[in-house]
Design a protein around this nucleic acid. Structure first.
Lengths: 218, 218
DNA sequence: TCGTAGATGTCAGTTTCCTTGACACGGAAG
DNA sequence: CTTCCGTGTCAAGGAAACTGACATCTACGA
């Protein structure tokens, strides 16, 4: 196992059994990201149905087999791609929230605005909304959308509780799931400019947010 | 890094034979960067002479043999590490220059200030200046410093010509090499606060810079 | 002074992961 | 109905990393 550590100092740094594989882990992550990025890139020019697994592998500079080894099937790949993009969206949303900690209603509006604006430009969303060959992707958002809704809601809840610790978790989770579902809905079927929709959502859910905060601080 | 177009960059160097390997190239770069970063990290706590090749490999999560395969020897590794850090310094310097295109003298001072401030904090520089076990590293800066001086000077010249196209190349190259050598000198042997030194350099070389620009625009 | 310990640099054998070429299966277009 | 094309899978081949061992050199201590 651990080769006799010459300086005897390296042993203490790794309390866990298996700690040292920084590169191999990074390399695997790089591989997956490269594949996912390549697919995303392809979606700028083609629709999802027109992008083959071979195209993705080629664009990533990797063999088709490697793609299948890393992600089991085309559907699994799509699923994971969606999950990753959702996580990315959440990152920008998180930034928007952090900039408006003082005003929860404004944070709500800003977050929704940021999300809808980014969604309108994202190739993945565009193919789902405007493209005809993306039925299976749409299904992953709705019918089979359980994983994406759940994980995103949970992460959003975490963000909320981090910024407003007094809020009770159950209320935050409820609000999160509601917001995620609304976000998906408006991303799939936009209605007017992003800022308009964001303001509407803020007006709709603002009172609930205020109540959550008031009850938490009481 | 300095990568503009992802797919086109690697194509030019190896004409027509092999064109697509975005991942493998990225993986190699990741490996080297991981090793270099690991070494840099080790220098925060130990001096260069106390950091063994095994330590670096372990910190990077890679076998010692892989380290030797990638960089031939300890000296070569040190050389390349220095080159990379120099390039990083140049990046921050470049930013400082870009922020002061309108006033060349101010750009000079700002660049030097940025450089000296960063150098004072950099672990690699610190071990060279304050550590006793870094004689070989010091040699790479001075006696064997030809590669680092040349490459850095050339890149700095490129930066200058990009910002002030009318300057004649020969003058810019002369100024660049002078600046690089002064930068190394002051990094190795600081004298007073960074801003003071930067102002001095600016005063010293300002006239030459003005002359270069005036002659170029005439 | 000699012997030991630790570090560098190198080698061969093994493993792991990616690549290559092939094939079966199923749907869409001729 | 046949032909193509894309998906999904397999076995063989190869490139790169891992492992363990070794020779060499230097520094340290008895």
């Amino acid at each position: 196992m651990s080769v006799g550590a010459p300086p005897a100092a390296a042993a203490e740094r790794t309390p866990a059994v298996k700690q040292r594989q920084p590169y191999s882990v990074a390399a695997r992550e790089l591989l997956r990201d490269t594949l996912l990025d390549a697919a995303c890139q392809e979606l700028y020019t083609r629709r999802w149905a027109e992008v083959t697994m071979a195209d993705i592998a080629l664009a990533a500079g990797v063999s088709r087999q490697t793609l299948y080894n890393e992600f089991g099937s085309r559907d699994e790949f799509a699923q994971i791609l969606l999950m990753r993009e959702a996580a990315r969206f959440l990152e920008s949303v998180e930034d928007a929230v952090n900039d408006n900690v003082h005003d929860p209603a404004a944070a709500l509006a800003a977050a929704f605005d940021v999300f809808l604006t980014a969604a309108a430009e994202h190739p993945l969303i565009r193919t789902i909304v405007h493209g005809e060959g993306a039925e299976d992707l749409l299904a992953l958002f709705t019918t089979q959308g359980k994983p994406i809704v759940e994980s995103t809601s949970e992460r959003l809840t975490t963000v909320m509780l981090a910024n407003w610790p007094d809020v009770e978790p159950a209320g935050a989770l409820l609000l999160s799931e509601c917001l995620v579902r609304l976000a998906i809905s408006y991303a799939a079927l936009p209605k007017g400019p992003a800022s308009m929709t964001a303001a509407s959502i803020s007006a709709l859910l603002g009172p609930y947010v205020e109540q959550l905060l008031a009850r938490g601080q009481a």
